[in-house]
Design a binder for these strands. Structure first.
Length: 419
RNA sequence: GGAGGGUUCGCCUAGUGGCCGAGGGCGGCGGUCUUGAAAACCGCUAAGGCAGCGAUGUCUUCCAGGGUUCGAAUCCCUGACCCUCCGCCA
């Protein structure tokens, strides 16, 4: 949710932001009038309620006819108060709906435009020269690392088994990520992956992404598509004592329905219903959010460096931002088999948008409570196996293990085809 | 799945219809005293909305939602969550 005070002061700021996203700016005006309507409803209710309270004390002391007269008056007043309260609740409700409908204020420097209007900030590393590269699935099958037919047999399309060295490799990757984060002061977490509707709503995933989310109707719980959800909700309704950014790194399984992606990335494990991820999540003072965002990006890059992968960093265009994000950077790793870069990490600065929904605050320098900023970023994820296998493949189908991963694989430096 | 108990201000707790947004203890902050500290004593110590330049005023919130009443932390109904016991259990 956006800051209503800022909206009152400068509605054009939000209209411009909505335009940059390619969204309707009428939602801003709807919110403005809902805000106006609520304020007048609240004032009417409060006036009546104050009178009711005053008369209430007078009745206690009154006697005889005087008391009868007062009771007569207050009875009528009680009905008015009730009506005003109902009107207030209705106005409140409309305000909330209108409030939820407005996306976060985009950072002014974010590139305008849609999905294809990203800006490439940099390219890092050297793309390997591989004649006739095998793709990750072919390599995974040679190594006995990935089994998609049996994934489909047991669970359906877009499910897979990681087997043997594949299972070990994923584990190594996530451990490397978590180790790096912990060394940098992150608090490691294993969060729940089933959450209540309010937690899902708080992070904004029941809006435009509702059809992407698995729901368990018998219990009214949702399977999270990212541990961002349980991490953000972790401090719901709390006032934090922050001395610098509060950083968490969570290991979790993620579940995505991938509705509407029929025919896209059907081969291998690029787009799947279930995967694992080490996710960074930060609560910090709003003033620090931009700098922290850069740091999250740097940590993502550091990990890709350790994996010795060629990648580029893109600055996502406003129209391609999630509704909670003010700015988003993606790291895309090079895929030799496709001859292009594919997203492997994504870091978003949600400023105070998420925290306002979840009611998470901290004490500022003057001791006043203030909404915090939240940020998230991918560290390591199952999908990274794809560039890892492809970029480090050898002509015979074996795969070189980057130095940083070797300690997590019992020192192995080469994965060889089984038979 | 069944039976019972519980949910009040950071924590513990008092409070069974108006004097309660709410008392006490602990903790925290400030002060007196002290060379310094401790102890003792004194004071302050929930969040949020609205109006106002401000001082301030006003309203909401005692798990949530409904109800009774002129008036609800307090009475009634529904629900959520927690605890204990029994049953079941990959």
């Amino acid at each position: 949710m956006i800051d209503l005070r800022l909206l009152r002061d400068d509605p054009d700021l939000f209209r411009a932001s909505q335009r940059a996203r390619g969204e309707n700016e009428s939602s801003v005006d709807r919110l403005l009038s809902a805000d106006e309507a609520r304020r007048s409803a609240v004032q009417r209710f409060e006036g009546l309620r104050a009178e009711q309270k005053t008369l209430g004390t007078e009745i206690r002391q009154a006697k005889g006819d005087e008391k009868t007269a007062l009771l007569e008056r207050t009875k009528q007043l009680a009905a008015e108060v009730k009506a005003a309260e109902a009107a207030g609740a209705e106005a409140e409700d409309e305000l909330r709906q209108a409030h939820l409908a407005v996306a976060n204020l985009v950072e002014p420097d974010a590139p305008p435009g849609g999905e294809d209007d990203y800006i490439v900030l940099k390219e890092v590393g050297v793309k390997p020269e591989i004649a006739d590269p095998k793709d990750h699935l072919a390599l995974g099958e040679l190594l006995g690392a990935i089994d998609t037919p049996r994934g489909a047999k047991v669970s359906g399309a877009r499910f897979y088994y990681l087997t043997g060295i594949g299972a070990l490799l994923e584990n190594a990757l996530l451990q490397l990520g978590i180790q790096q984060a912990v060394e940098n002061g992150f608090i490691p977490m294993v969060p729940p992956v089933l959450v209540k509707p309010e937690s899902m709503e708080g992070t904004g995933y029941l809006g435009a992404h509702a059809s992407e989310v698995y729901h368990l109707p018998a219990d009214d719980l949702y399977l999270v598509g990212t541990s961002e959800v349980p991490l953000a909700a972790y401090h719901k309704d709390e006032i934090l004592d922050l001395d610098g950014p509060r950083r968490y790194v969570a290991w979790s399984t993620c579940f995505r329905r991938e509705a509407g992606s029929y025919g896209k990335d059907t081969r291998g494990i690029i787009r799947v219903h279930q995967f694992n991820k080490a996710e960074m999540f930060v609560f910090c003072a709003p003033e620090e959010a931009q700098a922290e965002h850069k740091r999250l990006l740097a940590w993502e890059e550091e990990l890709l460096g350790k994996l010795e992968l060629p990648y580029r960093v893109i600055d996502t265009a406003a129209g391609d931002l999630g509704s909670s994000a003010a700015r988003k950077y993606d790291c895309e790793a090079w895929l030799p088999s496709q001859g292009r870069y594919r997203e492997v990490t994504s870091t978003s600065n949600c400023t105070t948008f998420q925290a306002r929904r979840l009611n998470i605050r901290h004490r500022d320098a003057e001791g006043k409570s203030q909404t915090v900023a939240t940020l998230n970023g991918t560290l390591a994820t199952t999908r990274m196996l794809v560039p890892l296998l492809e970029n480090h493949q050898q002509p015979d189908g074996s795969v070189r293990v980057p130095k940083a991963l070797q300690p997590f694989l019992g020192g192995r430096d080469l994965l060889e085809p089984i038979k």
